[in-house]
Each structure stands twice: as structure tokens, then as C-alpha cells.
Nucleic acid binder design. Structure first.
Lengths: 191, 191
DNA sequence: GAATAAAAACCGTCCAGTCGGTTTTTATGT
DNA sequence: ACATAAAAACCGACTGGACGGTTTTTATTC
């Protein structure tokens, strides 16, 4: 097999193994040895592809970011471009997706990142951009940011097992956050 | 000195030391040895008061809960009891306080608790109760929960260094969340 | 045959928790 | 009141396992 392909395969295997470990055993159990064991790669092979654990976590994070970025793009593409506040809706939909995926897949990563807080700045930088988009298109920017913050709150709460709502209740709340007409009326009335 | 006092002093010293370590060095550096060193207690003495690290974290968590519970009670006491949605306002005010206190005091604890996720259920159980209160008094319960979720989102984002807003912007958002009149009008219009 | 990838054994550090012992407080008997 | 025994608090060296990372060796690709 070609070297580039070989490397890529190994890296992907490592990432998938890491996701499995986090989902099954929690972020605290995500060790290099565990990844090696889970993926079938030897520790040496793993360390060859990722020089440090931080590098593994970074790859993991980028993998997830890519996943949700794609989701968000797809949503935007499938939506009427004249829809008001499309970026906001896309972000809220993406957050909703993040919270409802299989079983603590993507987000437990965030928990894993408690070990490497620096990596979270990657997410923040992306969010800054998203927020700028949302602001630019919003009739009432503050309200838009609050809707975004509420969605974020629901996601982060759920990720850390802090969410006091049931799954159905959370779903209803997301639905309401997405009810553009209602908020639009509010924004206009409040101008 | 009396035994009970002696124990209590030691336990408090440990908790204060733990807070100092988290604020200064981050949750990753919170070890039993570090707490012993910082507090002047010996390792043995520390272990006598807390049989496991989890016990330390639990005490730390309860200490912080008590702190914010008091803040919330004080707010409720100082407010006109006829004010609509007083519990919601109290919770949002408390969350605002949590995010603006000295320097990552209380919440970095949440980060520390990434090690012991079970402890977070204590917070969740309290939140469930708070949410029940908020719901009971709300003209529009869903809207009330969304306001709560937004405040939570701002706090958790900040705690984990994920917040894409500046401090002033965050402050404005909190102020708006607390503008009861505006939301009340919205709730009524939306009924 | 040079370079890259993978395997396997190994190393040093960190850290929660243990253990044997000392000091201080509290209970008891006289 | 005083002596003495028991209990509680405290001390700090030590242990054992986990874990991130390194080194050495072997296999595969170019």
C-alpha cells in the first residue's frame, strides 16, 4: 500500500478508536495506550503518526469540527437563501444535531479537552466568525446572540450531564428557538 | 482546641487551598499533594479528613453551591415579592455573578469535576428544583427556560474559554436577559 | 539501500492512596 | 483533681499502578 494511504488509514483508525473510548469509557480513560489497544495499532505506530497526545486531541477536534461544519453547510445549502437569519438557524440546527447524535459522541470530546484547554481556542475562533455572520444578518443582533447562547447552553449542559431537562423538553426548546417567525415579530416589536 | 473545631479548620484550609490551586494553576494541577503543600496540612492529615480525592472534590463543590445558593437567597430576599418571575431573575443574576467573580473561581471547579462526572449530578438535581420554581411562576414557561438556558450558555462558555463574546458584550446580554418587562410583553403577545 | 512506517520493550514521572507511628484531645476510673 | 486509657487528629515516608513519551528493532515502500 502507498505510504500516504497507510498513514492516513492509521490516523483515521486512531481517531475512531479515540471516539469509541470516549463514548464507552469517558474522557478520563482516553490514554495513548488505550487508543493503541482499541485500534490495533501499536503504540509505536501511534506515536509515529502523532508525536504527542495533544496532537491526537487536536486531530480529534478537527475531525469533529469538520463533521459539524459540513452539517452546517449542508443546511445552508438546502435552505431558501432569502430566509431571514439563515446563519443563526443553521447554527442552532447544528447545535441541536450535536446534542442528539448517537451517544455523547462529539461533545464528550469537549470534556476530553479539559486536559488541553488551549485547543478550545480553535472552537472559539470559529464561533467568533459564526457570531459575526449572525450579527450581520440579524434584525435584532442581541436577540440573535441570546438565541445562540440558549442553544449553546442546552448543548453544553447536556454534554456535561448538567441538563435539567428531559430529551423531549430539550427538543421542544430547540424547536422554539428555531421558530424564526415568532422571534422576528418580537425583534420588530422591540425596535 | 476542640476536636470538632480542629477538624473543621483543617477541612476549610484544604478547600481554600484547593480553590487557590485551581485559580492559579488550573484544575489539572489539583492533586492531593498540592493541596497538602498549599494548605500546610500534611498529606496524612488531609487524608484523615477526606478519605479520597473524590471526597475533597465533593466538599469543594458543596462549598461553592452553598456560596451561590446564599447569593441567590439574598437576591430573592432583597427583591419585591410581587415582582413577576422572581426566581428566574434570581437564577440569572446568580449566573451573572458566577461568571464575573474574581478569576475563574467557582467554575473552574466544574472543570475539575471532569474527573468525577458523578458529582455533577448534585448540581443537576438542584437545577431541576430551580427550574420547577421558574416554570411554576412563568407566564410563558418555555420562554423562561430559554432565558435560563441562555444565561447558562454564557456561563459555561466562559468557564471553558469558549465564549466568543467580550466581557462587555456578555454583560449587555445578561442585562437584556434580565429585562423582565420586555420578555413579559413578548410572552403576553405570544399567548 | 535509504527512508518511512510499525512493533515491542522500556523509562521516568506523577499521583492517589497506605501504613506505621506521634501528638493532642476526650473519656473513664479512682 | 489526677492518672490512665482510648480515641481522634496529624505526620510523612513509601507503594504500586497508570501514563506520556523514548529507544531499539523489524517490516514495508520507494
Amino acid at each position: 500500500m502507498e505510504n500516504a494511504v497507510r498513514s492516513e488509514r492509521t490516523r483515521q483508525a486512531a481517531i475512531q478508536a479515540a471516539l469509541a473510548i470516549i463514548a464507552r469509557d469517558g474522557p478520563g480513560r482516553l490514554t495513548l495506550d488505550a487508543i493503541a489497544r482499541e485500534s490495533g495499532i501499536s503504540k509505536g505506530g501511534l506515536m509515529h503518526q502523532f508525536r504527542t497526545k495533544q496532537a491526537v486531541l487536536k486531530a480529534l477536534l478537527e475531525h469533529q469540527i469538520e463533521h459539524f461544519e459540513k452539517f452546517s453547510q449542508d443546511y445552508l445549502a438546502s435552505t431558501d437563501p432569502r430566509q431571514p437569519e439563515a446563519h443563526l438557524s443553521a447554527q442552532i440546527e447544528t447545535l441541536r444535531e450535536a446534542v442528539s447524535e448517537p451517544h455523547s459522541v462529539a461533545f464528550a470530546i469537549v470534556a476530553a479537552l479539559a486536559e488541553e484547554p488551549d485547543l478550545l481556542s480553535i472552537i472559539r475562533d470559529i464561533d467568533v466568525q459564526k457570531i459575526a455572520n449572525i450579527k450581520a444578518e440579524a434584525a435584532d443582533p442581541e436577540l440573535a446572540m441570546l438565541r445562540w447562547a440558549a442553544a449553546r447552553g442546552l448543548v453544553l449542559s447536556s454534554v456535561f450531564g448538567l441538563c435539567p431537562f428531559s430529551a423531549e423538553e430539550r427538543e421542544r426548546l430547540f424547536a422554539r428557538l428555531l421558530d424564526a417567525r415568532q422571534w422576528d415579530a418580537f425583534a420588530k416589536a422591540n425596535r
